[in-house]
Amino acid sequence: MSKRLSSKYKIDRRLGENLWGRPKSPVNRREYGPGQHGQRRKGKVSDYGTQLRAKQKLKGYYGNISEKQFRKVYAEATRRKGDSSENLIGLLESRLDAVVYRAKFAATPFAARQLVSHGHVKVNGRRVTIPSFMLKVGDTIELKDASKQLAVVIEATQLAERDVPEYVEADHSKMVARFARVPGLADVPYPVHMEPNLVVEFYSR
């Protein structure tokens, strides 16, 4: 399991955006970057800088994804037929940890990743501990019986800050969810504006 090397909320402050739409994000109080130079005026950003920022934002949103993993997802997105930027979003949203998060079994992508890696989640009846496991349309995910009463899980299902999107069918009374379809960019409820087309441009330079 890859290790997150910095505080998740430093990503928020570095980008100047509330990346996960959470009420306790420090960006809600301070919109400038972290550190002693955080309040300096920013110069004009180059095309490369804009593309890099778009990549950092999308990669950061999905939690602990390493650069190696993210590049691998990009390579698969470009290999498939169709729009590479739409394919990229579809692949990221097909990850097991992403669907656990979308089903509101976890409060954050980081918590969803931990829930999977600690063995609390089953896919089609079998325990899966790999957060990057790619789901297929129609796959069912379920929490283990002993995990359904975890306080963090129950609290997550009751969060009012986000809803379960249409491409995930969740039953919180049974702690079961189904991956109904692969979404496109317009279907994904990102709290901030994502630009996967710039990510594709960044890697194809």
Rank of each mutant, 00 (worst) to 15 (best):
Y32T: 08
R53L: 12
A75N: 10
Y9D: 13
A180Y: 03
P165Y: 04
K59N: 06
K59D: 04
R95A: 04
L150F: 13
K8V: 02
V200I: 15
D12G: 09
A103C: 06
Y74M: 15
K55G: 11
A186T: 06
S204Y: 09
F179A: 00
D163W: 04
H193C: 13
Y74V: 07
N87T: 01
F105R: 02
H172T: 01
T50Y: 10
G60Q: 03
P26F: 12
M134P: 07
S85M: 04
G60I: 00
Q149D: 09
A98T: 00
S204P: 05
A186Q: 12
A54V: 00
K42R: 15
N87L: 04
V192A: 14
L159T: 00
A107Y: 00
N18W: 07
L52I: 02
P191S: 15
S25G: 08
T157W: 07
I130T: 08
V73H: 09
Y62I: 01
S7K: 13
A98S: 15
V164M: 13
G119P: 05
L5P: 11
A112P: 02
G125Q: 06
V100S: 12
D47W: 12
V27T: 08
T108L: 05
D139K: 08
A111W: 02
D12S: 11
E155K: 12
K55H: 13
P23E: 10
A107S: 08
E155A: 15
V188K: 10
D12V: 01
P165L: 03
G63Q: 02
D97S: 10
L92V: 01
A106Y: 02
Q36N: 06
R41H: 15
S85D: 09
H120S: 12
L115K: 01
V128P: 03
K144W: 05
A160R: 09
A170M: 02
I65H: 13
L19D: 01
G138H: 04
Y167D: 00
P196Q: 09
H172Y: 07
N28V: 08
V200T: 05
R4A: 11
V188E: 08
V128M: 12
G21W: 02
K68N: 11
P26Q: 14
E161D: 13
L159I: 03
